[in-house]
């Protein structure tokens, strides 16, 4: 079942001399539950693409359909709610709100909705992420790996349509990196989360089902990878 379809997505920044075409008529589609790695050199448009899939940055032209719906037909308020409920976003750095503890950071999408978090789901995630003993700790009291786990928990709490991770292991050592990737793979396999992961690490990319190669804002090629 198609969960995502991108049609001629283009993004242009700046004007005149400083005009940059970050994405150039990118088109592709994704089935539900796929694990896709996006690779490419710096400035190839990977982050831009990711943010457009998540409804964070509006395209100059082109369309993004999530679950059959053109997400950019929504206004800003509707897009924010869409992100809250349908997208899970994980960054390389600064993923967490420093003054909220682990539980609160994970529950943030629910809290923004003004709803109480699903406690059983929260407990389950804390268990899976091995954060049960640290649920009241503040981000400053956690290691880098633990912080990223919290951000994964936040991304998954709502069981979103897409999980978008922008170099989630870029700031971690190899052991923690692998642990994070395993958790993401687990969410992909067990919860059927459709997962997009930007990475420079070839090993991590090869763990995906499909690799999309970007350069100069265009899709160079796509590769299907065996699991």
């Amino acid at each position: 079942m198609e969960i995502l379809r991108v049609e001629d997505l283009t993004k242009i920044y700046g004007k005149g001399e400083s005009r940059v075409k970050a994405l150039d008529e990118v088109s592709f589609s994704v089935e539900k539950g796929e694990f896709i790695a996006i690779v490419g050199p710096s400035g190839s448009g990977k982050s831009t693409l990711l943010h457009m899939l998540g409804g964070v940055e509006k395209p100059t032209s082109g369309r993004v359909f999530v679950d059959g719906k053109d997400i950019y037909e929504q206004n800003d308020e509707e897009l924010a709610v869409f992100r809250r409920r349908q997208i899970g976003l994980i960054y390389q750095f600064y993923n967490l709100i420093p003054i909220l503890n682990v539980k609160e950071n994970i529950s943030l999408p629910f809290l923004m909705d003004g709803r109480n978090v699903n406690e059983s789901r929260l407990e389950e995630l804390l268990e899976v992420l091995d954060l049960k003993n640290r649920q009241n700790a503040l981000p400053g009291q956690l290691s880098g790996g633990q912080q990223q786990k919290v951000s994964i928990g936040r991304a998954l709490i709502n069981a979103p349509a897409l999980v978008l991770a922008d170099e989630p292991t870029g700031n971690l050592d190899s052991k923690n990196s692998q642990e994070i990737v395993e958790l993401l793979k687990k969410s992909n396999k067990e919860y059927k989360q459709t997962l997009f992961l930007i990475t420079h690490d070839e090993n991590i990319a090869l763990q995906a089902e499909r690799i999309i190669f970007l350069d100069d804002g265009k899709i160079l090629r796509e590769e299907v990878v065996g699991r």
């Binding site: 800003d76 308020e77 992100r83 409920r85 976003l89 960054y91 600064y94 943030l108 923004m112």
Partner: peptide, 16 residues
């Protein structure tokens, strides 16, 4: 501002 951007990225509305 990064905190604010993060909140918006994960679904905070401008009104909020």
């Amino acid at each position: 501002e990064r905190e604010t951007a993060l909140l918006m990225a994960i679904g905070a509305t401008r009104k909020q």
